[in-house]
């Protein structure tokens, strides 16, 4: 069984500030990181492999620093990683075309896992697009997979509870954070992850993809800024009035 995990390198949101004067993101101290959402997908894949064997391949699309994410996937336990060097804009459509081509070049897969989109990730979650592109069923909001003699089952979030459904392979699943946290990279894997033989470097031309197939479906414009945070506001009135007013304010901010 081959499980492909789509992983992205994003930016650690804690290292990004908003420049209100320039109305743009201040990325001077930004640090790249493997998107935490994608580590949950890798963890799910590794657990399936541990229960029923097979191979876990991480597919990472990106420019130079994205190699680190491919290596990190190997350090966490992926058998190997494919790093697709792509310097252009990585819209959802572009990423889907590249990952689909990689799955085909790998000789197919039984299961493709992807995480939710990250905070600054404008390409968005890839699972739904990949399922449509590959023509495979989509399992949304998967929290966990159970390997049983009868086959593979997914436990997926469903309206506040969860539902258990058999996985008909091949399939694509979007993994959301479940009860278990992704494992730490293991030192003995960290030690070898940068050695030869773990990461294959591919590019779009090698996979037979042309410019048109990779054209972005969306591009980024400027920022729209809300009101600046204003501290120290006092809400008057009786406790009941203050409670009502505050509840209204917090609902507007989607905090309730």
């Amino acid at each position: 069984m081959r499980i492909v995990v789509c992983m992205k390198q994003g930016i650690d949101p804690k290292t990004v500030k908003i420049s209100r004067s320039r109305e743009e993101l201040d990325l001077r101290e930004a640090r790249p990181q493997t998107q935490p959402e994608d580590k949950h997908a890798l963890e799910a894949a590794l657990r399936i492999r541990e229960a029923r064997g097979g191979e876990v391949v991480a597919v990472v699309v990106g420019s130079r620093s994205a190699e680190d994410t491919a290596r990190e996937a190997v350090a966490m336990g992926a058998d190997k990683a494919v790093w697709i060097v792509y310097k252009g804009q990585r819209s959802g459509k572009t990423m889907t075309a590249l990952v689909k081509a990689a799955v085909e070049r790998l000789g197919g897969a039984d299961l493709v896992l992807a995480g939710q989109g990250g905070d600054l990730d404008t390409a968005g979650p890839l699972a739904g697009r990949l399922a449509a592109a590959l023509g495979w069923p989509l399992i949304a909001d998967a929290l966990r997979f159970d390997v049983e003699p009868a086959g593979l089952y997914a436990v997926a979030a469903f309206e506040g509870k969860a539902t258990r459904l058999p996985v008909v392979l091949p399939a694509v699943a979007e993994v959301i954070p479940g009860a278990e946290r992704p494992r730490y990279p293991h030192p003995s894997r960290i030690a070898v992850a940068w050695n030869d033989g773990y990461v294959e470097t591919w590019n779009a031309a090698e996979m037979g993809l042309e410019e048109e197939a990779l054209a972005a479906d969306a591009e980024m414009g400027g920022l729209v800024l809300g009101a600046e945070r204003q501290r120290g506001q006092v809400i008057g009135g009786s406790p009941e009035q203050a409670a009502e007013e505050l509840a209204g304010i917090l609902r507007g901010k989607r905090l309730l």
């Binding site: 290596r71 990190e72 350090a75 990279p185 960290i190 940068w194």
Partner: peptide, 11 residues
């Protein structure tokens, strides 16, 4: 630091 030790430091 070499890349692998940077990852180790983060871990």
């Amino acid at each position: 630091l070499p890349k692998h030790l940077q990852l180790f430091k983060e871990m």
